[in-house]
Design a protein around this nucleic acid. Structure first.
Lengths: 253, 253
DNA sequence: GCAAAAGTGTTGACTGTACACCCATGT
DNA sequence: ACATGGGTGTACAGTCAACACTTTTGC
């Protein structure tokens, strides 16, 4: 593999979703060198006349079949990675983006598109960590930390849900991403006291879940983005002696 | 000016300091097209075999004479700007960095270096705004907002001070950057209650200022980076599309 | 003495947390 | 009936803003 002079601009996307209740990230399986057969973040080179965001959307469509993206999707720039040697072929500076998507039916692999799958984050980051291509482990790690942090002071958690949703659904987003448990009653109060975080939908849930329970009120996303005071991931609650639940450790399943 | 094919990678630096008590940013005067004679953020093209951060430090040295940078300087990636057409010569993707520097004696213009000066941020951002080169107004704006925000939840304000410093000096950093007033006694308590924000220096200030006042105790930077709870600038206008208030009286949902 | 800056003490309002308790549904 | 998730009430503790007050300097 010869090194080529000059620089290239690429974009990579850390696309998070909650699949089957698990905090997950979209990966594509590489079918060419370098790192053939390894899993990687979706992405590719930026064309000469397109913006960085246009490149992100184009690559998402091409590599994952995500053509019609939901309006609720959140997309933001994460960080830029430009160490010499991070791509063995040539100097490549990659602008990484982070996206939040609701649990869609099946944006996975298409017939003419590469194999794309959502993986639970804990299975990818390990231990043991999956051997992703390039410096993608680092990018994913940065994305995970940023996502966890952003849930604290923004309304982005609602981006993982399709409308309408129940406050319990919203709470489970936080619990899953933070790997913690939150008091349902206090969570409810905090969310409702944030003006514009959620807006009442006026209806009630029909089915209440697998094992009964009172039907919940339904809500939609409000127009507030920043939250004050922030919701907090209190690591103190992880030391719950009464019950052991999936905490920080990846359970492989 | 002909457009050249291919892409280029550049870095730009938003270098903040407090000069004579004013929140200031380092600008260089361009002496070539495009945007000749306009002021711009220091920066330049990334060489083929250097990292992005190395490029930042090299450009700072070359354009501003800042060769021996103080260890206290904070440098972090801000954001990447890659819109087609942001540089009329060729497609250029610029990775912007943000730096905090203490008020140094005179890193300004050198004989063989371009003219570099610290400008008070309020004079540059206006109104009326200075016509900076390229999309540098936007980059500066992003940097200012990020800097103001980071002072809330990190100990970075101390990066603007040379050790040892007085708590009043630290408070004036916040007051200047946020353009606000803080209660001296409450500020003192908050800062001292943050473990590792500042550490006692054991001495007292000799001169107490132009108009007297009790000599202050002296402090140095601690090793904590994140602060909890954060210090806050006026939270009232943080967010919200100003609609129905629900202030103290809880409305039960 | 007076002004100014540093530093201490106090108070009342507000906020977060823990947890008891009621509500409405599936099985 | 009972388990389960939704939702309300409440009390205690901690935090924060406001501000009165003392200390120590320059002038």
């Amino acid at each position: 593999m010869r090194r080529v002079p000059g620089v290239a601009i690429a974009v990579d996307v850390v696309l998070f979703s909650i699949r089957d209740g698990r905090f997950s990230v979209l990966l594509v399986r590489r079918n060419a060198e370098p790192f053939e057969v390894r899993w990687a973040l979706p992405g590719g080179l930026v064309k000469d006349d397109e913006s960085l965001e246009q490149a992100v959307l184009r690559e998402l469509a091409a590599e994952t079949g995500l053509v019609k993206l939901p309006a609720a999707m959140h997309l933001e720039q994460l960080r830029t990675y430009g160490a010499p040697g991070r791509d063995p072929r040539r100097r490549t500076v990659s602008v990484a983006y982070m996206a939040f998507l609701p649990d869609l039916p099946a944006p996975e692999a298409g017939g003419d598109t590469p194999l794309a799958l959502f993986w639970p984050v804990s299975e990818v980051t390990g231990p043991p960590a999956m051997p992703l291509a390039f410096d993608h482990p680092r990018i994913l790690e940065d994305g995970v930390e940023r996502a966890r942090g952003k849930l604290e002071y923004t309304s982005l958690a609602a981006s993982f849900l399709e409308e309408p949703f129940r406050l319990g659904d919203l709470r489970r987003i936080y619990e899953e991403v933070w790997a913690t448990r939150l008091d349902p009653s206090n969570f409810r109060r905090k969310v409702l006291n944030q003006r514009g975080f959620v807006v009442p939908h006026g209806l009630r849930a029909g089915s209440t879940g697998p094992r009964g329970g009172r039907p919940a009120e339904l809500y939609g996303r409000g127009d507030a983005f920043l939250l004050w005071p922030p919701l907090r991931r209190d690591n103190d609650e992880l030391n719950d002696p009464t019950e052991g639940r999936q905490a920080a450790a990846g359970d492989g399943g």
